[in-house]
Nucleic acid binder design. Structure first.
Length: 603
RNA sequence: GCCACCUUAGCUCAGUUGGUUAGAGCAUCUGUUUUGUAAACAGAGGGUCGUCGGUUCGAAUCCGACAGGUGGCUCCA
């Protein structure tokens, strides 16, 4: 069976779903029912609300329809006839769709969204007693349909517009065989097990409090280690290329964003702060670039000074809609590993090369596969900056990507209005792709802030700005990374790298364990002693549950010969035999593995 | 913000059709035990069942509002 067959099956299932809903609820107004990744959905407008409990009933009705092995019959109607038909059957949404399809050269954005305008006929598909406007691509007989399952219901605005009525959307997934369906469900199950919110609690990484508010996670000591190690690495990668750390305050007058243009664009996402002492109206910063322009602008710059590279890992605040908040992936306090380069336009390529190199290193170290999307301008006139500048910048981006041997694809019309960009797509351990790092060129802010440098010939020229974040946001990166690793962090990131377990609570044992702890701390190793009055088995289990990379059990034997056989978390192991080694050597190895940011143990 | 669902001990969850003092495991604390690579034994403490209001002789259970959470609200016949 081909990919088309699967598409047709999914399409047919949407149709049958509509049929089943009609049968069960009567009086339904139908919206659209497209095929989506892994399945399909259909939007309905009906009196009573459908809840997830009703899905089984609907699913059973769908199975009954399929078991009748009905045929899909196509009927082409002239637009006028079709309009008449849907009016009679009381289907206002279908009527709207047909009108849009028929409209010629319409300037309404909605009509052009639909695409093939100016149609003279439209098609209907009939299965059993149920007849629906449909572009087609159906199976011939319902029994050709494979495995499916209705997943959930949700609200969805008619044509995605908040001002339109809200409809009820039913989602389903569909595959050729029950086995593939099973596999997909297993994948979802696995994703649930790895859910960063669940692991964040189990591994004691971050917490939320109703008193602090939603979308504002706090990090425990363990979680803070993760954040700081990642941020430190992200900064190190760029310091190699001459980036310097700067610091900017978290509040600013809103004038800064009026000048940058962000006020007009993001006004309702900004948190306002009122001064009780003065009449100042301040905002919490939602991004750092405007601040950085002011550091750049603080003194006259020569072409010899460029590129100037600023690094600023800091938290910004955005007022997201409450319904869009969740875990660490959507928050209101967002920490960015932000950087900005101010350079001459001919320096773009070498700067890009540095940043791509840094990104490649970063994602190799966290073992995620990377590919990039190059987003260019198209021929419309919404873009600011000269066409020559765009042309040259886009070429330089591409050259740098090719030089770095990155897998890439190009998309026209996806650029921001202020410049072309590169988005990095990282694939996690269960095959999901996430957009994390970005590099964006910016021709607009240098202009708005009147940034300049003196060129060789003594004239004033405008620098180009390059925005870059390697992690993207620390919170979002962590949400992805926790799920990617399922909480089994590599040695260099593990909040607790070594756990020392005592066999008993006798003085000698405790003192010996403490002495190892002290030595480990001196080497910068994150270590904990478990001296609880519990069985060794229990203490081993606790260390395993916290996914600690190395566990040492300390008893008489270790005290007498000063050697250990470390217990190593299974995913870190390459060799099957583990040698006994001197405690000093073990600690040195761990310190070195941390420094080298290795993925596996050498023990 | 909108739609659906959820909220019982620190955590994970039971709790029949509304019916007396709301349960379990883990965790915590106290004893006993001094333990050798994934859970020793015993006992104790811990909940105004998310909050507020309503219905009822009686509410964890039914209704409403609010708060917090989960899945969606981008996929265009």
């Amino acid at each position: 069976m081909s990919q088309d067959d699967l598409q047709n099956q999914r399409h047919s299932l949407a149709h049958i779903l509509a049929h089943a809903v009609q049968d069960i609820y009567g009086n339904v107004k139908f919206g659209v029912g497209p095929v989506i990744e892994n399945g399909f959905y259909y939007d309905f407008d009906l009196e009573q609300s459908i809840s997830e409990e009703d899905l089984e009933k609907i699913e059973n009705r769908m199975k009954e329809i399929i078991d009748q092995d009905l045929s899909f019959e196509r009927e082409d109607l002239m637009v006028e006839t079709a309009l008449d038909k849907v009016r009679k059957s009381g289907q206002p949404y279908k009527e709207e769709l047909i009108s849009d399809l028929a409209q010629k050269g319409s300037t309404s954005p909605e009509a052009s969204e639909i695409g093939n305008q100016g149609a003279e006929t439209v098609s209907f598909y009939k299965v059993g007693e149920f007849d629906d406007l449909c572009r087609g691509g159906h199976v011939e007989k319902t029994k050709q349909i494979g495995a499916f399952k209705l997943m959930r219901v949700s609200g969805a605005y008619w044509r995605g517009k908040e001002t339109n009525p809200q409809m009820q959307r039913i989602y389903g997934i569909a595959f050729q065989t029950p086995k593939e369906l099973r596999q997909h469900l297993d994948m979802l199950e696995e994703a649930k097990k790895r859910d960063h919110r669940k692991l964040g609690k189990e591994l004691d990484l971050f917490v939320l409090s109703d008193l602090v508010g939603s979308g504002m996670p706090m990090f425990t000591p363990r979680g803070t280690v993760l954040r700081e190690e990642l941020e430190k690495y992200s900064n190190e990668l760029r310091k190699e290329y001459g980036f310097e750390k700067v610091w900017t305050p978290h509040m600013t007058k809103k004038d800064l964003y009026e000048t940058s243009g962000h006020w007009a664009k993001f006004g309702d996402e900004l948190f306002l702060v009122k001064s009780q002492e003065t009449s100042d109206e301040l905002v919490l910063k939602p991004m750092n670039c405007p601040h950085h322009t002011q550091i750049y602008a603080s003194s006259p710059r020569s072409y010899r000074d460029l590129p100037i590279r600023y690094l600023d890992t800091t938290t910004v605040y955005r007022d997201e809609k409450t319904g869009e908040l969740g875990g660490l992936s959507r928050v209101r306090s967002i920490t960015q590993d932000d950087s900005h380069v101010f350079c001459r336009s001919e320096q773009i390529e070498s700067e890009m090369d540095n940043l791509l190199h840094a990104a490649r290193d970063m994602y190799a170290t966290v073992s995620m596969k990377l590919r990039v999307r190059l987003s260019y301008r198209d021929n419309t006139d919404v873009y600011l900056g000269s066409a020559e500048l765009w042309q040259s910048a886009q070429e330089q981006l591409k050259n740098a990507v090719i030089a770095n041997k990155l897998e890439f694809f190009e998309v026209e019309g996806e650029a921001a209005f202020y410049g072309p960009k590169i988005d990095f797509m990282a694939t996690d351990a269960i095959g999901r792709e996430h957009q994390l790092a970005t590099v964006q060129l910016d021709f607009v802010q240098p202009d708005r802030f009147g940034l300049a440098y003196t060129a060789e010939d003594g004239t004033e020229k405008q620098p180009v700005m390059i925005h870059n974040a390697l992690l993207g946001s620390t919170e979002r990166f962590l949400s992805v990374y926790i799920e990617h690793t399922a909480g089994k962090f590599p040695i260099w990131l593990a909040p607790e790298q070594v756990r020392i377990i005592t066999v008993n609570q006798e003085y000698e044992t405790t003192e010996f364990a403490r002495s190892i702890e002290v030595k480990a701390r001196e080497l910068g190793i994150r270590v904990q002693v478990d001296n609880d009055n519990e069985s060794v088995g229990k203490k081993i289990r606790n260390a395993e549950l916290m996914k600690v990379p190395y566990t040492l059990v300390i008893g008489e034997k270790e005290i007498s010969n000063g050697r250990v056989v470390p217990r190593i978390r299974k995913d870190l192991v390459v060799l099957s035999a583990h040698p006994e080694l001197a405690i000093e050597d073990f600690l040195k190895t761990v310190a070195n593995e941390t420094k080298m940011r290795v993925q596996k143990t050498s023990l």
